[in-house]
Nucleic acid binder design. Structure first.
Lengths: 344, 344
DNA sequence: CTTAGCACTCGTGACCAAAGAGTGCTAATA
DNA sequence: TATTAGCACTCTTTGGTCACGAGTGCTAAG
């Protein structure tokens, strides 16, 4: 039901449509495919492909365009990957080699992706449950105010300002810092509240105990907001499919609240790159888009995702290797940041 | 040359155009202005205003639209401010009252602005020359890697990872931290390189000395990239003037590289809100936009700017108080973060 | 100085016809 | 039996014309 020639035709149609964004007809296709094959034959095959759901026609007298099912078949069976150039790879590697804070590394990775792919990219940072505390620092900002800095294991730096109700002197703060660091190293952020309870109840006064629990609770909430970055906004309007302003506006709107749909779409735990085409997406507004997602890992465990979103008419051959590369380089960079060789 | 009635007419035209985005004609205007005044009279005045450059006509048989000069006169002389509602103000105050890190405060302020104004907002963080070091922390990430955390005076937290060529043990790091904090408190970031030279040359070995200077140099460069936030991307397409995709795309593109033009446009050191209308902007691509800028201050000195950009047909009466409010609340919040009452 | 009246301009939308691209079907062909 | 040429048909696109409406500028009257 899907012989070699039909596959070739499907592939040619999809690649032409990806390149031009115009419905492709039998005549132009016959000219483009160098095989000795006439438009009429192609028409027959096209009619078949249409009936089997791989193609659609916008109206009777237009060419065919690929359906979601067509893209799916293309991605799964026909795709030839277009590996990024050496200098592009080098640029990413170099950016990530300058050892930044982890958040910045993630941002650099998706900026690189956005620029080379010309689509919009997003990144989800590791959530509360994915990180462990490496180090806590307390800085007095005044007699009743502290800056709490938490460095988590992949290398993220979070900070929150605490207001105390009573003054605490510098010495007490240093003591508190020592206690916190001693007790919390390696603890998951999700246990923090409980652990701190325990840590402080033993050694500190009741007041600081209450304050710290509340403060850390706030820090946790805080770090769980804004876990999503978006890059490449301007790329959106470069796509012909988003020239209709209301369509573009809808997508922009959705991109602005990524938290609501991103979780559904990406399958965490996957190692490779996943492609979700059109109607395969659960969120209605992006059912004319393709979402490409990959996870990045630290210590072999997936901790966050990077995502790319564009029209279903996407340069799959180019995007997939880029995603692959970005995810693996990012994992590598975070790994380097995360794993001290040995502690002296 | 600009009597009261002409002003009223100009004002009515501008406000109607701001509301509808449609050229406004004499008939509808006569009906809208309750004064007993005929379309013909208005036409005469309109012709005058046109000749004097306050109005333009897209073509002979359309109504008039305000010119840059018209908007300018409106903003300077005719504008009646539309103060934001109490609950909106309260929302901003409450967001900023939850003591976040300074960067987040700035971001929250322009998010609030973007949401209430429906335009795109930007913020420029204090540059290298605007901040002083409050505290430096060094965290060992391994035997040859350090996390350098710099807390600057308005309350920003920057961090950079350092790779050392030779292992340094924990005790040495703690000693280095003590030295750095002792020497650098209150120093401007721009002096850091020099100061560190001095600080370390006295007390540390030559190798660490070189490393630290290089590291701090990198940290400085780093903190000077990405000093600009943009919020409200989706608002852009809501404006009728950006329904033409190529116009919207151009603006998006420019917004993506704000560093190049923002510096020119905003006049730092200004205390109040500045409005730059259309051709008054130096950057060509935004000469059909209005840029509203305000500075925020710490310790009475302006350290950064918040900016709003929209079509020249902007709700000036609403935007100006919002900007005013955002800037002053933000200054207040940073001030609170910056000035410890007293150190114990 | 204001206003009514009027001729004039110009963009908009409707309508229509021709063009063009592409299809499906049929019949001829290898 | 698979392929292809030919052809009628469909449907969008494009261009042109025309009437309409909104708005203007001018003139003359109040």
């Amino acid at each position: 039901m899907m012989d070699r020639r039909k596959e070739q035709i499907l592939q040619a149609i999809i690649e032409d449509y990806i390149a031009t964004a115009e419905p492709v007809g039998s005549r132009t296709l016959a000219r483009k495919m160098r095989i000795g094959i006439s438009p009429a034959t192609i028409r027959n095959e096209m009619a078949d492909l249409c009936e089997e759901g791989y193609l659609e026609q916008p109206h009777t007298s237009a060419g065919r365009i690929p359906s979601d099912k067509g893209y799916r078949y293309y991605v799964d069976s026909l795709l030839s990957l277009d590996q990024p150039g050496a200098e592009e790879l080098e640029r990413l590697a170099e950016e990530l080699r300058r050892r930044h804070e982890a958040r910045r590394l993630v941002q650099l990775a998706i900026q690189w992706l956005a620029q080379l792919s010309s689509y919009v990219t997003l990144a989800v940072l590791p959530g509360v449950s994915q990180v462990t505390v490496r180090r806590i620092d307390l800085l007095p900002l005044g007699d009743v105010r502290l800056l709490l800095i938490v460095v988590t294991d992949p290398g993220f730096v979070d900070s929150v300002v605490l207001d105390l109700k009573i003054p605490v002197d510098r010495r007490e703060i240093m003591r508190l810092r020592e206690i916190l660091n001693r007790q919390l190293q390696g603890a998951g952020l999700s246990d923090l509240g409980r652990t701190i309870r325990q840590a402080i109840r033993d050694e500190m006064n009741q007041y600081l105990y209450d304050q710290m629990v509340e403060a850390v609770r706030q820090a946790l909430l805080e770090s769980d907001e804004d876990r999503v970055f978006v890059e490449g906004w301007p790329n959106l309007l470069r796509q012909p499919e988003f020239r209709q302003p209301e369509r573009a506006a809808r997508l922009l709107e959705v991109l602005n609240r990524p938290g609501e749909w991103l979780a559904q779409e990406t399958s965490p735990g996957e190692q490779q790159v996943t492609v979700t085409i059109g109607r395969e997406n659960r969120e209605v507004v992006i059912q004319d888009c393709t979402v490409v997602a990959a996870t990045y890992c630290v210590g072999g465990r997936p901790v966050g995702t990077i995502t790319l979103i564009g029209p279903t008419r996407m340069k799959y051959g180019r995007v997939l290797p880029l995603m692959q590369q970005a995810a693996s380089e990012l994992s590598q960079a975070l790994e380097d940041l995360s794993r001290p060789l040995r502690m002296l």
